[in-house]
Simulated assay, not measured.
Amino acid sequence: MDGLFRSDAFRQVILTAGTMWPRTINTESDVTPTRDGAPMTRIAGGIFHMGADDQYPEEAPVHIRRVETFWIDLTPVTNALFARFVAQTGHVTLAERTPDPAAYPDADPALLVPGSLVFVQPSAATDLLDGLAWWRYLPGASWRCPQGPGSSIAGLDDHPVVHVALADALAYAAWAGKDLPTEAEWEYAARGGLDRAEFAWGNELMPGARHMANTWQGRFPFENLSDDGYVGTSPVTAFPCNGYGVFDMIGNVWEWTKDSYRATHAEPPPARCCSAKTDRSSDLEHMVVKGGSHLCAPNHCRRYRPAARQSQSIDTSSTHIGFRCVTRDPQLQ
């Protein structure tokens, strides 16, 4: 990742991104590589309209939020960065551990083995309310083997790491001296200064017929036209950055936040007293994930927007969930 930060191509993207957007963005002087080698950019605090009233009900109501100044990773954490973390710490992800049978008393014993959720494309149209039609718990699937045994991340160093549960993201953030973003910080950064715009780049999904993010083209889940050039994940700088010079806030992979999920913005945050005490528990907390993924399509999960949000149990890992980090270190302000 250090090489990515230093590369002429990457620096040029950062410095010229402002020509694409209606406001001045952070320049290279506001971009810094940090302890884990991931470049971060400074997001000046401010007020914005959070949520949406004309999309999914959980995004309502639109309300005013203030965030303080923070720094955010320019991209999701990549396979290369996560591999460095694992090499230095010996971390074993939740997907690589054997589940505790006591935490899952109703589970099929055959599934109580290390593994993770993998998207398997059906051959024909299916009920869009039946996620089991395309999700499989695949033994042996992990960040190292994203499609299960026999697969690898060879050649995917610059793709986002996947198959990371909340505990894995938090462990990485702690190692890097960072944190996960709050939902408000994440959405504020994703908007890139375009307050109340539908997308991170404006109000048109494909301005000038240009794909702006890695999402699903075709009829989900059985027809993937891959008009954007990718089936599955893509390099974290494959698509244009937003107005703050931040990449991949939309599409590619969902990203963990540190906020507990609530059904709408109007509901009070849930009490933390019932949060899981261990990595796997029968009393699972659900957190907010943001940004949508390469599996989001116009006919299903139209959540490739800054306001979009989804609930995710803390023990879940899959082929379409990753994360990025923030820091609120005043020494960097």
Rank of each mutant, 00 (worst) to 15 (best):
P139H: 04
L15S: 15
D106C: 09
L132D: 15
C273N: 14
P330A: 14
Y230E: 10
G140E: 06
W71E: 05
P269V: 11
H294P: 09
V118M: 06
T69I: 09
R97G: 02
K178S: 08
V77K: 01
D329W: 13
G155F: 09
R302M: 11
P76G: 00
A95R: 00
V113G: 02
W135P: 08
P39G: 02
D127G: 03
A17C: 10
T237W: 15
M50V: 00
D100G: 02
C273Q: 14
A87K: 09
E285P: 02
E96P: 10
A209N: 15
H91I: 03
E187C: 02
F82N: 02
F199R: 07
C325G: 02
V326A: 02
A169S: 15
S317D: 05
T182V: 07
I321A: 03
A141V: 01
D30M: 08
H320L: 03
I64Y: 07
A95V: 07
D53N: 15
S313F: 11
V86S: 00
R42Q: 06
S313M: 04
I72H: 03
V13C: 12
P235S: 13
M40Y: 04
H286L: 12
S260A: 15
Q310E: 15
F222N: 12
S313T: 05
F222C: 15
F199D: 05
S317T: 06
L166Q: 06
P181A: 09
A80R: 04
A38S: 09
W256V: 04
S123W: 11
R42E: 01
G45Q: 10
S226L: 10
D130I: 11
M20E: 14
A83Q: 01
A133D: 12
T264H: 12
R280Y: 10
A169R: 08
L332F: 14
A197F: 07
P269K: 12
T93R: 00
G3I: 09
A213K: 05
L112P: 05
K277H: 11
V162N: 00
T27Y: 11
F247D: 13
R144C: 10
V288T: 00
F5K: 08
Q121K: 14
L205P: 08
